[in-house]
Each structure stands twice: as C-alpha cells, then as structure tokens.
Amino acid sequence: MDAIITFGGVSRTYEPAGRPALDGVDLEIEAGRVTAVMGPSGGGKSTLLNLIGALDRPSAGRLVVAGNDVTRLGGAAAARFRRSTIGLIFQFFHLIDELSVIDNVALPARLAGMPGRAAHERARTLLDQLGIGHAAKRHPTGLSGGERQRVAIARAVINRPPILLADEPTGALDRRSGEGVMDLLADLNRLGHTVVLVTHDPRLAEANATRIVQLVDGRITGDRQNDGRPR
C-alpha cells in the first residue's frame, strides 16, 4: 500500500537545551491501515500524533500527510488541512459542553463551510449510526464516557477525512465502553479511513492494529506487523 503519512528525519524539541520529544524519526504509515504507536509516557507518542494533525510543527525534518507538506503549513492552511484531512479523537473527548451533542458533531462541517441544516442532517445520520441518536439534543455533560467518545468519533468523521488520529481513545473509559469504541474504529477502518492509534494498552494494540510501532525517548525502537514479523 502507498504511504499516506511520511516522516523524514522529523524532530521536535520544546526547550532549546532539552531532550527532543521526537528525535530524527523516519516512518511511513500506509493508507487504510490501523497503526498503533506504543511506548512509555513521555516517549513522544502524542507529539507524533500532534505533528501528523498539524497541531504542532516539527523543529526539523519533513512530514508529508496525504500529499501535504505539513511543515510548511501556516495557521490558516493548517486549519483547512485539518478540516478536510484529519479526524481527531482524544482521551478526554474534548467536547464543547455549551453545545448540544448534535451541534458538537456538526461543528467541523460548519467550519468547513457546509450550511447549518445540511451539517445537522449529516450529524444526525452519524449519531444514529453510532447508536446515540437519542442524545442529539442533550449536552455532553449528561452522557456517559462511552457515549461522549462516540460523539467525539462522530465529530471526527463528519467531514469524511481520510485519516483518523486517536490519542488514547479508551484511556478514560471502562473496559466494555473501550471495546465498543475500538470496534467503531475498526469499522471506520474497514470503510477506508487510515487510523493511527496511540495507546498504552498492548492488548488493545494487539487486538486492533495491523502494525505496531514502539516509540521510546522520541525514537522508534520497534516496528512490526501485528502477525509478529518485524518490518
């Protein structure tokens, strides 16, 4: 498969004299796969995800995502890139409590220029598909963790982005809810989305990812297909 994400010697350093969060990473992620990034805390996993999503910029190297050199994207271009190419799923959901569920889901579509009525219709469809259509007019604070993460997933896919980035998507959920969320991500992958998943949980990675990358101290220390064979 063709690479949809290509890291070329990418580094990210936050403090001038500090240890780099990412240190010369070379990595290609194939389209249509579920790739899990694992490693100890502070290893650079979230930083890697942030760079892919153009939420942050590399200090060195080149990073191409879906044909876009994200190292060259300015603020507005990065925002438009995220609208069209990236779906974000966070450990703590990051829903806007003042908005209703359907408004949260429709928000990226509205930002992408879709008229409000059309955005809400698409959001309604997604919520129904995810089994939480009944909560459309409620606010996130009235939902369970699993329901909130489903809302976040619906929000992440409303613009049909080719890439989904999930940072510890089950970290704040109980086991059953977490399994439900991972099943959703698997379904989305089958529909064609590329999924890059950060997780601490080796069982979760083994059960869902087709490739597992180990990241320790900002460097890739392991990279294998999920059938046990090294890459």
Partner: peptide, 27 residues
C-alpha cells in the same frame, strides 16, 4: 465551558434545530 451547565429541559437548551416558523427563521 465545563463550569457552566445549561439550565432548562434536558431535551432543549442547545442550538438544535427547532421546529415552527419563528425558530425556523432564527435557524
């Protein structure tokens, strides 16, 4: 946002799509 809880009926209170002529105009 997380410190403010919207008061009012659980079914309402957001910028959902309401029904009726005036709400439609507002929407």
């Amino acid at each position: 946002t997380s410190t403010r809880r919207r008061r009012g009926p659980a079914s309402g209170g957001g910028r959902s799509l309401p029904t009726g002529r005036w709400p439609a105009l507002a929407t």
